[in-house]
């Protein structure tokens, strides 16, 4: 664990969750933050998305309030991403304003309610560009079980929107999140404003090496997405340069977002 102990580690992808009473799941938060401290991380960026269905403004505002509650418990260790549903555009834009300007959130989290290249999402992308904040979007090239998440974005959706908005900053979530990661790397490699995080439970040998080979370490962020051992182990086991590992663990291109939050 010397790699983690001796270097700055920014975890760009994890979550807080509601409990069965729709309040902040404190036990789960405690376990995550204990793991965070035990593995020598310096900052964790979290969101609280609704995974199924079409959340209303009341629901996504509540999600962000829970996220903010978690931040108040760990103000030095945690930053937030605003979760919104682009199907409610006016409310989403207002919520981004509230969370970024009043609560100090540092980016937008979109889930699987719409493809990122859908025209429905455009106003959110344009707002993020104006505010200079990144968009972290749930993503995968699912070769099995795709019907369960028909609007999950894949690399081609990202490529389309990255070409359309070259000034946007798009993070393709969890390259190890369970999908054809080789397909994804080829789909996004030509678009320098698409980044990936390495999180997810899939720890296929070569996934980090191929990610660096296609994108370069500068376009890769460290993340866990509830899979600490897989994500940490991928970084420890990858056969890439130490300097590239350090760059991924603390991607300097994203430092400005943290400083502003």
């Amino acid at each position: 664990m010397d790699l983690f102990k001796n270097n700055t580690v920014i975890n760009w992808h994890d979550h807080v969750w509601p409990d069965e009473n729709n309040k902040l799941d404190e036990k789960r938060l405690y376990l995550m933050m204990k793991s965070f401290h035990d593995t020598y991380m310096d900052l964790i960026v979290c969101s609280n998305p609704v995974l199924r269905g079409n959340p209303t403004p009341e629901e996504f505002i509540h999600c962000n309030n829970l996220q903010y509650e978690a931040i108040t418990k760990y103000p030095k260790e945690m930053k937030g991403m605003v979760f919104v549903n682009p199907g409610y555009m006016k409310e989403s834009l207002n919520e981004i304003d509230r969370c970024v300007n009043e609560l100090g959130f540092i980016g937008v989290k979109l889930y699987n309610q719409y493809h990122i290249s859908s025209p429905v999402v455009r106003d959110i992308i344009e707002k993020c560009i104006r505010m200079d904040i990144p968009i972290l979007e749930h993503a995968a090239k699912l070769n099995h079980g795709a019907a369960l998440q028909p609007y999950t974005s894949n690399g081609l959706h990202f490529a389309k929107v990255a070409e359309q908005y070259p000034e946007g900053v798009f993070i393709h979530a969890h390259i190890g999140g369970g999908g054809d990661w080789q397909w994804t790397l080829k789909a996004i490699e030509d678009f320098s404003n698409i980044f990936i995080d390495i999180s997810g439970s899939v720890c296929d040998e070569d996934i980090i090496e191929q990610s660096v080979s296609h994108l370069g370490a500068k376009r890769i962020l460290f993340g866990t997405d509830m899979s600490f051992s897989a994500s940490i182990g991928k970084m420890l086991g990858a056969d890439i340069k130490e300097t590239e590992k350090i760059e991924i663990l603390n991607n300097k291109a994203f430092e400005k977002y943290i400083m502003r939050g």
């Binding site: 664990m1 296929d204 182990g233």
Partner: peptide, 16 residues
């Protein structure tokens, strides 16, 4: 599950 997967994730688990 080598050589399909990195071995380190399993070593991390042993460590913790």
């Amino acid at each position: 599950v080598a050589p399909f997967q990195y071995i380190d994730p399993q070593l991390v688990k042993l460590n913790y």
